[in-house]
């Protein structure tokens, strides 16, 4: 096969590989369920990144495979050297400038996504998140409950409403990760860390501690329940009633298995 024909064949095969790669990137279920508007933005960013990166990886692999196929040493060439090509300024400028432009384009797009994901909405509710070795608890302030503060060991959120989490740690650093929202931040002792999410899909999704926090780290999980706003109000009311009946001994607050958080809820509801 002539050099020209083999090169054509290689280009065709590489383009085919790029096409298959991109098709596969859509076929594979990379992510768990999308349950927040932020998740949709982040997943779109991921797909754009993958589509931009596949041609680059195919290019590198194709050059290697083509070189192995066409330029490997044949019998009788044991003492042969290649042509003494020391460089090519135009090519070197090209492969400096083009990746730089591509990278800056990708990073600019990622900043747009970041801005969209973090911008302050017109209306939002605040939920406190408290981490301690090895449990989560969630505090709903009076502005959300319309009465006394409410505490829970599972996170309940109304669908379609923006929520700002305010993260507190009682001991070491934890990370509050909701994979279905594609969001996490570290929970740092001594400071309050905040982030926003807008859940937009009903269901129950895992909450994971994603920063090594000690012996029970791998079991420090909880769940977020995204429920309709009316149901959320009903849940708040039921928690208020439960807290009102038995101060400090609300049945679901004790599930947290964290005595200190139970007493906080009890004291606050008086």
């Amino acid at each position: 096969m002539s050099r020209r024909r083999s090169l054509t064949l290689a280009v065709v095969l590489a383009l085919l590989a790029i096409g298959i790669g991109i098709a596969l990137s859509y076929a594979i279920h990379w992510f768990p369920a999308q349950a927040a508007t932020q998740a949709r933005n982040t997943d779109r960013l991921y797909h754009v990144l993958v589509i931009a990166c596949i041609p680059i990886f195919v290019l590198v692999t194709a050059v290697i495979l083509y070189s192995v196929w066409q330029f490997h040493m044949r019998p009788g060439e044991e003492l042969k050297d290649g042509p003494p090509i020391h460089g090519n300024t135009r090519l070197e400028v090209l492969w400096t400038a083009f990746p730089a432009a591509l990278l800056l384009g990708m990073i600019a797009y990622s900043f747009v996504v970041l801005h969209d994901n973090e911008k302050k909405p017109a209306r939002e509710i605040h939920v406190g998140v408290t981490a301690q070795q090895f449990a989560w608890s969630f505090q709903y302030p009076p502005a959300v409950t319309g009465g006394a503060p409410v505490e829970s060991d599972q996170l309940y959120l109304p669908k379609g409403e923006s929520v700002q989490f305010r993260l507190h740690s009682k001991d070491v650093i934890h990370a509050f990760w909701i994979p279905a929202f594609r969001l996490q931040e570290d929970v740092v002792p001594g400071i309050t860390v905040q982030y926003r999410a807008t859940p937009d899909r009903l269901g129950t999704y895992p909450i994971v501690c994603n920063l090594l926090c000690g012996i029970g780290h791998s079991l420090m999980r909880s769940a977020v329940h995204v429920i309709p706003p009316a149901q959320f109000q009903a849940w708040i009311q039921s928690r208020l009633r439960a807290a009102g009946q038995g101060a400090g001994a609300s049945p679901s607050a004790t599930v947290a298995g964290a005595p200190s958080s139970t007493s906080t809820a009890g004291a606050a509801s008086k």
Binding site: Q38, N41, T42, L45, Y46, L49, C53, I56, F57, V60, T61, I64, L103, M106, I107, S110, F111, V113, L114, N117, A175, W177, P179, R182, L183, Q184, E185, N210, L211
Partner: peptide
């Protein structure tokens, strides 16, 4: 080949919203 893959995933991790999901 393997280092190119590692480099590509590194570039993806520079994208803050994506890193926020997969960090750690």
């Amino acid at each position: 080949t393997t280092f190119t893959l590692g480099g590509i995933s590194g570039v993806m991790l520079a994208m803050v919203p994506f890193d926020i999901h997969v960090s750690s």
